[in-house]
């Protein structure tokens, strides 16, 4: 049996994001919220592991009330218990405060049954820091393996796992003792097709809601904006650099244009 914890984040679909050019802020209206794509990989991986080894999946998320929709969707992937961390006091958290809130919640949940494996996404597509996974592992005092692209095997008796990790220079094959926290790469799993019966189960489920008041005890000054050492000072839209010359091949001869390219290459010492 494996006891699995998956941490997911609801994010705006950044493909559809628009910016208000005057204020430099996001226009959230009409932008759909989705489960962070890498967290879907984490969920599908947990689901596959549960099928193979047996066990339970607990899914947590911290976010505004609407993040419950992400958790309901997680039920479609086989989540057995879903928990929403939602409170004004959690809002405005940077990764240090986020990892504190998540880690304390995990420690609370572990009083019942400790987890063997914690699955996080490689990164969230909005904040994009990839810092929360390593942060939570550090607070739990367990090893972390980031960029996991394959789980080869798990030995339930010995409580060990063999996995592949993508680095800049190749693939590492690692053996680790459980419990361990991993962050998931795209190749780790396919997101399965969800049958209608499971969708129905998702619709009918409701998450447990945890707040700053309980059931987990939090130190107040470690939460949300207050517990965040980083501050966003300014937000702006990136400047475009000045436009160069445009050659329309209907008006300029191909020969001239190629000649210009060769000139540039020569000037830069590339020919």
């Amino acid at each position: 049996m494996l006891n699995l914890l998956v941490s997911i984040k609801q994010v705006p679909d950044t493909t559809n994001i628009r910016i208000n050019p005057e204020t430099g802020t996001l226009i959230r209206e009409g932008v759909p919220s989705i489960i962070n794509p890498y967290d879907l990989i984490a969920l599908s991986t947990a689901c596959k592991l549960k099928q193979k080894y047996g066990g339970k999946i607990v899914v947590i998320t911290m976010g505004p009330p609407q993040a419950r929709l992400a958790l309901k969707e997680a039920v479609e992937f086989g989540a057995d218990r879903i928990i929403l961390l939602s409170d004004r006091k959690f809002a405005g958290a940077d990764t240090l405060a986020t990892s504190y809130t998540l880690a304390e919640t995990i420690k609370f949940l572990e009083k019942e049954t400790p987890f063997d494996l914690y699955l996080f996404g490689k990164q969230a597509i909005d904040g994009d820091t990839a810092q929360v996974g390593p942060g939570v592992a550090t607070r739990l005092g367990i090893p972390v393996v980031t960029y996991v692209n394959k789980i080869e095997s798990i030995d339930l008796k010995e409580k060990t796992i063999i996995l592949h990790r993508k680095t800049e220079r190749g693939i590492e094959i690692l053996r680790a003792k459980l419990p361990i926290l991993i962050t998931c790469e795209k190749e780790l799993s396919h997101v399965p097709f969800v049958p209608f019966s499971e969708i129905l189960k998702g619709i009918q489920s409701e998450p447990e809601v945890f707040t700053a008041e309980g059931p987990v005890f939090f130190e107040r000054d470690k939460l949300g904006l207050k517990g965040s050492p980083t501050q966003v000072k300014k937000v702006f839209t990136p400047e475009l650099k000045k436009q160069g010359s445009l050659y329309d091949l209907k008006e300029h001869s191909l020969n001239d244009v190629i000649g210009k390219i060769l000139e540039i290459l020569r000037a830069k010492g590339l020919l």
């Binding site: 592992a137 980031t146 050492p229």
Partner: peptide, 23 residues
């Protein structure tokens, strides 16, 4: 902000309880 650097930084900032700006 390489795979190695990003992996390491998240843990170090947490151990030092300080802020970390990514990328």
């Amino acid at each position: 902000a390489t795979p190695l650097g990003r992996d390491l930084a998240g843990g170090v900032a947490t151990l030092l309880e300080t802020g970390l700006t990514a990328d």
